[in-house]
């Protein structure tokens, strides 16, 4: 049901600009007002979210590690530096592997029945990693490639990207590999939630909704490029003048563009308040970005009151020696004159 709600919701989102632009002719509203508001909400929401996280103190090292930590005796064991880092640079490498290569997804396992040996065991399950990385990198390339429609003068590297993405020269307009791969990735990520009963049970609307939304964005983009062949010159005119704060809405832009734009705006609105914030959050996850030096460095609680000094037992006894002696409590050091008194 959660999947169905999300799907119906995305359909409704597609209908809004279709009616708004197609019937009500609200081109300025859907072409300029909504996207700019969405961008502002995205930026402000993102900053607020990061600020909120940055306020949270992380007084202790709490990395989740896999592998040998820096050993006391280096001749006995070798440290697994990237899974169990103990210094800053090692942690940077660990974070890079996490952010760029999705290392923790690569370690994904699944419980499986090994029919041959008749045992239930954990086995490596790389599919999630593979399709996740396809999806994320395709999305990144697509966003970067879109810059050719945002920049008045397109820098050379973006031209290479456009060329490389279509290098297979399949069809006209040239098929972009990233267009195919993002859909393959998305459909796997969606399929896995629908097919596996365990994952279906824990999947919520806010798991399905971003998937359907991004599928909608990708499909509307594919439709615009390969089927409707929308007027990209007019679209670029609109987009670039928007970034230069000279608002104009040229005529002759196909409605499918407004659908695409509205879905992207929805994504931007939704982004800071959803699980998609893992874009920023991955860098701030304390189980990943901290070195495992709990027993190497002295960690002090950062909000300790500096005016409260440590108070040893010896000092405590100094404070209360006389009454303690009077009460007959055992003392490490007797009060002055007590010994003579006892002898006498």
């Amino acid at each position: 049901m959660n999947a169905l709600y999300s799907l119906v919701f995305v359909f409704a989102l597609v209908l809004i600009p279709l009616i708004g632009v197609g019937a009500a002719k609200l081109n300025v509203f859907f072409g300029i007002c909504i996207p700019s508001t969405a961008l502002l909400v995205f930026l402000a929401g993102f900053v607020c979210k990061i600020y909120g996280w940055a306020k949270r103190p992380v007084p202790f090292r709490i990395p989740t590690t896999g592998g040998q930590q820096e050993p006391y005796d280096t001749t006995l064991f070798t440290q697994n530096k990237w899974d169990n880092p103990s210094t800053g640079p090692q942690t940077v490498v660990r974070m890079l592997l996490e952010v760029l290569c999705f290392r923790s997804l690569f370690r994904n396992t699944a419980v499986k029945l090994d029919v041959k040996n008749n045992v239930v065991a954990y086995a490596s399950a790389k599919w999630l990693w593979l399709f996740a990385i396809l999806f994320h990198y395709s999305f990144f390339i697509i966003v970067a490639r879109h810059m050719r429609l945002f920049l008045a003068k397109v820098p050379m590297p973006l031209e290479w990207l456009e060329f490389g993405d279509g290098i297979m020269q399949i069809g006209i307009p040239r098929m972009y590999m990233s267009d195919v791969l993002i859909l393959v990735g998305l459909l796997f990520l969606l399929g896995r939630r629908l097919v596996d009963p365990k994952i279906r049970y824990i999947s919520l609307v806010n798991d399905y909704f971003p998937l359907f939304l991004i599928i909608g964005i990708a499909l509307s983009g594919v439709y615009m490029r390969y089927f409707a062949k929308v007027d990209v010159i007019a679209i670029k005119d609109m987009v670039v003048s928007l970034t230069q704060l000279k608002f104009k809405v040229p005529a002759g832009i196909d409605n499918s563009f407004y659908v695409h734009l509205f879905l992207v705006s929805t994504l931007l609105f939704y982004f800071p308040f959803s699980k998609l914030m893992h874009l920023g959050g991955v860098f701030l996850s304390p189980t990943r970005n901290l070195p495992n030096d709990t027993r190497i460095r002295h960690h002090e609680n950062p909000w300790n009151d500096k005016s409260i000094m440590p108070h040893s037992y010896a000092a405590y006894e100094d404070d209360f020696r006389a009454p303690m002696f009077e009460a007959g409590l055992p003392l490490e050091k007797l009060p002055e004159g007590a010994e003579e008194e006892a002898k006498a």
Binding site: F150, A152, K153, D237, V240, K246
Partner: peptide, 8 residues
């Protein structure tokens, strides 16, 4: 980036 270039 576009702020530097002339109106499109």
């Amino acid at each position: 980036f576009n702020a530097g270039s002339k109106a499109y």
